[in-house]
Simulated assay, not measured.
Amino acid sequence: MRFDTAADLFIKEHETTWRNLKHVQQWRNTLETYAFPVLGSMNVSEIEQSHVLRVLAPIWKTKTETAVRVRGRIEQIMDWSTAHGHRSGPNPARWRGQLQHILANPDKVAPVQHHPAVPYGELPAFYQALAAVKGESSRALRFLILTASRSGEVRGMRWGELDSTTGVWSVPPDRMKSKKLHRVPLPTQALQLLQAQPRGDDDDYVFVSNRGGMLSDMAFTATMRRHYPDAVPHGFRSTFRDWAGECTHYARDAVELCLAHTIDTKTEAAYRRGDMLEKRAVIMQEWADYAAPAQLVLAAP
């Protein structure tokens, strides 16, 4: 079987498990641009490490992040080919114990660039300035800060996900990076923001764009650019994590679960069945009290 054929079959078998169509297109684009010119017409049983290096070496230092993804995608396609009986032997694209001894460590070639964030010491003043800004984007961004959530989770939030009795927001799996239901204990300030929003039907968005649909990601980005151009919305999760680490003594696992991060090891995960909701409620309320004094929450309707 040719490599490009194997790649196409692999993508078709797995695309329903991937989060969105953009991810599928990224797979196809990177393989067509970088892998197919070298490997596309080759039989998967004939591909060796030297061929994989011909794909990776030219871009390893200049397009490191892309090269790392291409290597991983080639590895998965080759594993798929082996599992389906089209080839045998070691995977020529494997990193551990193999290519790691030939190619430079990607973290040293191109260190990971973290999302620029508002320092936690500056957050109360930033929140105060944001509270004075009118508009749906400002209110949604404040809710994002108070809950340490991701943009897509907040923008896609519907009224039916909120339990007004318990004060818990249940984010469905299809909007979570982990693909697992995530319960968010809402601090008083976040509940007050929601109470000020016009209540729609269960399927209606909580924060609505001017056109009546879901807010765009650019709505958050534009708000940040106007008021703190050196940071991005996703950076508030880092702000929260820095605050928790520097200013509190809460257990690391509880803080990580506030961010919906997975537990480090499978062994820990096997024994941890709960989501520490009550402990997280205390953390999130203290975070909200730090970031947003009550008198700032309902400003700028």
Results as ranks from 00 to 15, higher is better:
M1V: 13
R2W: 02
T5Y: 12
F10G: 04
I11K: 03
K12F: 07
E13P: 03
E13I: 04
E13Y: 03
E15A: 15
T16I: 15
T16W: 01
T16A: 15
T17G: 06
W18L: 12
W18T: 13
R19Y: 10
N20A: 13
N20Y: 13
N20M: 12
Q25C: 10
W27E: 07
R28Y: 03
T30Y: 10
T30R: 13
T30K: 03
L31D: 04
E32S: 15
T33R: 12
F36W: 11
P37C: 09
L39R: 05
E46R: 00
Q49A: 13
Q49R: 14
S50R: 15
T62K: 14
V68W: 12
V68D: 08
G72H: 13
G72L: 14
R73L: 14
Q76M: 15
M78H: 07
T82E: 15
H84D: 11
G85H: 08
H86Y: 13
R94C: 10
R94I: 05
G97H: 07
Q100W: 06
H101F: 02
P106K: 08
A110C: 09
V112Q: 01
Q113I: 15
G121V: 06
E122F: 00
A125P: 00
L130M: 12
K134W: 12
S137P: 00
S138L: 02
R139L: 04
R142P: 01
L146K: 00
T147R: 09
A148G: 06
E153L: 07
G156A: 11
M157V: 10
R158K: 14
R158H: 06
E161F: 03
E161W: 03
T165Q: 14
T166W: 01
G167S: 09
D174W: 13
S178H: 02
H182C: 10
V184Q: 07
P187K: 01
Q189I: 03
Q192H: 12
Q192W: 10
L193Q: 02
Q195P: 02
G200H: 05
G200A: 06
D201C: 10
D202T: 14
D202Q: 10
N210I: 11
N210E: 12
N210P: 00
R211L: 12
G212Q: 11
M214T: 14
S216M: 07
S216N: 02
D217G: 06
A219Q: 02
F220Y: 09
T221V: 09
R225V: 05
P229Y: 08
A231G: 05
V232Q: 03
H234L: 03
G235R: 01
F236E: 04
R237Y: 13
W243K: 08
E246L: 08
C247G: 05
T248Y: 09
A251K: 12
V255W: 02
E256C: 00
A260K: 00
T262V: 11
T262A: 13
T265W: 00
E268Q: 01
A269V: 05
R272E: 14
M276Y: 14
E278C: 03
A281Y: 02
I283T: 02
M284C: 11
M284N: 08
E286H: 15
E286L: 04
A288H: 06
A291K: 03
A292H: 00
Q295Y: 11
V297H: 06
V297F: 04
A299T: 04
A299K: 11
A300E: 04
